[in-house]
Nucleic acid binder design. Structure first.
Lengths: 109, 109
DNA sequence: TTGTGTACTTTTTTATGCAAAGTACTTGTT
DNA sequence: AACAAGTACTTTGCATAAAAAAGTACACAA
């Protein structure tokens, strides 16, 4: 439904610190959000193609080079929109969660 | 991502009161969750085919007959699972929302 | 040299959600 | 009588998103 929750999480994480895919996956896992590579890499590419992210390569001393992603100014604006969407969604769902069970009328003998 | 938010909302609404599609749409709209028929009807069918819902027909005095959906016992169990999923998701997202922007070291002259 | 951990990429499948168009009943308006 | 508007359910077809799966490649340790 209101798509973009994962996108929102990724952008939010990147807004605090430039990061690369593998690190993002580890962070999400530590927060109990299972995300696999097959989901994250295409998502990052989409965000980059949409001009919400840019990247640079950096060497690593323990493995292959890393692609560090960074929010663009468009990305920051988009992040604010997603922030509002999340609040609206959470509010709506919480209202639904608060719905009381309707009392059925039970006829006494 | 963690699919099932709409499903969750529908089941939760039905758990409080048997209802029909048109009424559910109106309720969701009033909560600012835009849902259209093309989304809801197939979703209700899927839930029925999965044995989470059953239905009965009821005449209406102002329009065509209505299909009232009702949670099955399997549906109640599924609803509890979705309830947990939502809590986990909301908790994870809120943790991400709380991430502080990293201070960049600025060298003074 | 074999395995493990790191890291990115691509392809394929599945499911979700929406747009759009269609059927059909009731009530009110011209 | 004809038509529009509101109610109510159904189906089809498309676009996108997420997951599964398989692949490439580097570093290091046993």
């Amino acid at each position: 439904m209101r798509k973009g929750i994962l996108e929102y999480c990724i952008l939010k994480i990147l807004s605090s610190k430039d990061s690369y895919a593998f690190e993002i996956i580890k962070k999400l896992k530590s927060l109990k959000l299972i995300v696999v590579e097959g989901t994250l890499y295409p998502l990052l590419s989409r965000l980059k193609n949409g001009n919400f992210l840019s990247y640079r390569w950096e060497e690593s001393n323990q493995g292959p080079p890393r692609k560090y992603y960074k929010l663009t100014s468009e990305g920051e604006i988009f992040l604010k929109e997603l922030d509002n969407s999340w609040e609206e969604l959470a509010e709506a769902v919480n209202k639904i969660r608060a719905i009381k069970k309707e009392n059925k009328i039970v006829l006494k003998k």
